[in-house]
Design a protein around this nucleic acid. Structure first.
Lengths: 155, 155
DNA sequence: GCTAACAATGTTACAATATAACATCCCAGA
DNA sequence: TCTGGGATGTTATATTGTAACATTGTTAGC
């Protein structure tokens, strides 16, 4: 899980960061995009597109799949969220400026997800791609298993 | 791309290996499962489930999605193929006995896929999970980008 | 050989995920 | 003010995957 002391605070921080970055890059951080980003963060775990759609429809009954997917596309493209390919779900990124690539630990039990970005992993992946004369554009690294909390709980 | 001198030969090798392993493990390598494995290998690249279904229906018109997915599940579970999460596609595994986890290089241009399994990557990932007190069950590592062949071609 | 049990497959229906295509709206800059 | 392009609305459909129950096939024990 992405730990935080005060979750509302943590959501606001993520939104403010996105807001600032969008201003700098002249991107349109519209109400819709902001709301989807907030909803992704609110879950604090991987969020499914259609769950987001259902939530959105509570305030915006005419929302459609494309409404959500387009906002998600924008957020992904600009590094504010990541798609978790192995879950078909979306998760907020806490450091949109640091790097585009994130590595994830996904607990099969509590469904929580944590980033495990590590320059050592990046380095070894780079070495491998270089060795294979491959130019990497995007790396998906998702490790599923059991987190400490769940392991302790089940003892 | 998974290189081979003689593709028919290479498919047969994969099927024979699966056959042998199934005998040893008392698994039922039925005609259906064998045919799906052959079809996955024939493409020599990531194969989509519904494309496999269409092919299958040419000889077995009553085949349904579940027909294909169940065979794929069997093949995945026993390490004969892998699911490529970022593509929703399936690819043959050339070393079902060596290890369960494979890492992939996926060319966005030619759509070919190659394994880049490397004990160094495995070691780093293990170190990271240990550091995070996480017990890994399954690792998805998929690197998309451009392969040498395509880079050379476009020069 | 019979048969009970279970695995595999057949079959129907549907759920879940995602995109295409075109219409409309809205806003920044000429 | 007008206009071009990006954002959103809207309809329809494509793609991916599973649930649930029926039927068939295989096998181990009798």
């Amino acid at each position: 899980m992405i730990h935080c002391e005060d979750h509302e605070e943590c959501i606001l921080t993520a939104i403010e960061m996105a807001d600032r970055i969008c201003s700098q890059k002249q991107l349109k951080f519209t109400d819709l995009r902001k709301e989807i980003l907030r909803m992704v963060w609110e879950g604090h775990g991987p969020q499914k597109a259609y769950d987001l759609l259902n939530k959105l429809q509570q305030t915006n009954p005419s929302a459609k799949p494309a409404t959500v997917y387009r906002a998600l596309d924008f957020l992904i493209k600009n590094g504010f969220i990541h798609k978790v390919a192995s879950l078909n779900a979306f998760v907020g990124c806490s450091h949109p400026l640091r790097h585009q690539e994130c590595y994830f630990l996904i607990c099969d039990d509590c469904k929580n997800i944590s980033e495990c970005c590590d320059p050592n992993i990046t380095a070894i992946i780079q070495a491998t791609t270089k060795q294979n004369q491959f130019v990497a554009k995007n790396t998906t690294l998702e490790i599923s298993g059991h987190c400490t909390e769940c392991l302790n709980r089940s003892e």
